[in-house]
């Protein structure tokens, strides 16, 4: 009942806005948003533009001389190992994102619907590992999977293996396990937020009308939480596609991802134009699902608008 009251009274306070000036006069608007604009343009858009331009060059420095060439593109097309690597990276990012979302969904469900007064504590317990050092958490898995690490010792003790050996270390599976570990709490949060926004009335109405719990879940809870699921998926998929630290630490030669090659081009091979091209290829792959998602959310927002 109190929830209902809340829903009725809340919008009222928020919609009682007028056109009166705010505390900061409108004339200062430019100086409010200016610095952020400058930062975004100078340190994000400009580097991306430079990177794009560099894909048409063979020389990384000396921008005064300008020779326009498709040489890098030709090399990229003619090198199957790049394609294989890109495909494998996309596949690994997909697997990591899917596993993270599937593993995180029940966590989010419990946090949103069953945690009761422990909710804030649960959220805190998820946020702390999510925000603490990425590098150290990857390092922990390198130790766990190592030859005399936790997993090997436990399996040896249980008699499952005969001698101490690295378990999974330096394989793509190690990369996947480690990254799911890293991203799981990140994936849980947007799903929990989406679940939390579902009106309890809808769930009550469903059960009042005789829906079984699993039917309520499949036909109401799950579809309504999809925006959170998709956000979580992208939150994991995009950074994973560009990941190179985890493959370098636990992946071994079979676990190499496109990010490692890009890193090599910039730091070791000093072939920046090729690195730029591979980065652009990766961004393109990232943009496709991102564009698709924004279209989806636009459509679903319009649909939601129809109910108002």
């Amino acid at each position: 009942m109190s929830d209902y009251v809340n829903q009725v009274t809340h919008p009222v306070t928020n919609s009682r806005t007028t056109n009166k000036e705010s505390a900061i006069p409108r004339s200062l608007l430019g100086s409010l948003i200016g610095p952020t604009w400058i930062w975004l343009v100078l340190f994000m858009l400009l580097p991306m533009l430079l990177m794009f331009l560099m894909t048409f060059r063979t020389e990384a420095f000396n921008w005064r001389e300008w020779e326009f060439t498709f040489e890098n593109y030709r090399k990229f097309i003619e090198t199957p190992s790049y394609h294989r690597l890109l495909l494998r990276s996309v596949w690994m990012a997909f697997v990591v994102a899917a596993l993270s979302v599937v593993a995180a969904y029940p966590v989010a469900y419990v946090v949103a619907f069953q945690a009761g007064r422990w909710r804030n504590l649960m959220i805190m317990l998820l946020i702390v590992p999510a925000m603490s050092s990425f590098l150290l958490r990857v390092l922990a898995w390198r130790i766990i999977l190592g030859s005399s690490g936790l997993l090997s010792t436990v399996l040896l003790g249980l008699g499952i293996i005969d001698e101490a050996a690295p378990i999974l270390l330096y394989t793509p599976t190690a990369v996947i396990i480690t990254l799911v570990y890293v991203w799981l709490p990140f994936a849980a949060l947007p799903i929990a937020v989406a679940l939390n926004q579902i009106e309890p009335n809808l769930l009550e109405a469903a059960s009042d009308l005789g829906a079984k719990p699993y039917a309520t879940f499949l036909r109401i809870t799950l579809p309504l939480s999809m925006p959170g699921v998709i956000a979580a998926f992208l939150f994991v998929f995009i950074p994973t596609l560009g990941e190179y630290v985890t493959p370098a630490l636990v992946g071994g030669p079979e676990g190499v991802m496109i990010g490692n090659i890009i890193w090599d081009q910039f730091s070791r091979a000093l072939n920046w134009p090729m690195g730029a091209l591979l980065s652009m290829a990766m961004l393109l792959i990232v943009l496709i699902p991102a564009g698709f998602i924004s279209l989806y959310s636009k459509i679903s927002r319009e649909r939601a608008g129809n109910y108002d």
Partner: peptide, 12 residues
Amino acid sequence: PSIVLGAGLLIL
């Protein structure tokens, strides 16, 4: 992805 941002800034 951090690598793309870092590489872009390196070029800049």
